[in-house]
């Protein structure tokens, strides 16, 4: 699938979610932030990714190829699906994040018991 087709699908899915949730929407730009600028809440983002999965027949999140925190802007979404459809996405680096989290929790517990 070409980049412009991916962008068109992403825009249509965003517009559909906004329409269904009665989110006022003027124009969608690639630099728009999904939450801050477009006003989508977490469940709206979940609905958007469900529409995108149905359109692209590909879910990068359940396959652990991306984390929802990787997406901030409309461009990020287009980039993610473009890479995913090309097969160039690498598994999300969750282990580092988990290690960092557990280290933080351990430090906190150590401070409490001190």
């Amino acid at each position: 699938m070409k980049r412009n087709e991916i962008e068109k699908t992403v825009m249509e899915c965003i517009q559909r979610v906004c329409h269904e949730q009665s989110i006022p929407l003027k124009t969608v730009e690639f630099h728009h932030r999904v939450v801050e600028d477009l006003g989508l809440r977490s469940l709206d983002v979940a609905t958007l990714t469900a529409f995108l999965e149905s359109s692209f027949k590909f879910d990068p999140f359940s396959q652990n190829l991306a984390s929802i925190t990787d997406i901030r802007t409309v461009k990020d979404i287009c980039d993610l699906y473009e890479k995913g459809l090309k097969g160039t996405l690498k598994p999300a680096a969750t282990d580092d994040a988990n290690d960092a989290d557990s280290a933080r929790i351990k430090r906190k517990l150590a401070r409490r018991s001190a």
């Binding site: 269904e20 990714t49 469900a50 999965e53 149905s54 879910d59």
Partner: peptide, 12 residues
């Protein structure tokens, strides 16, 4: 439930 909920979300 996650697999099915994705489609239910689309149908509301």
């Amino acid at each position: 439930a996650r697999s099915c909920a994705k489609f239910m979300l689309q149908a509301r």
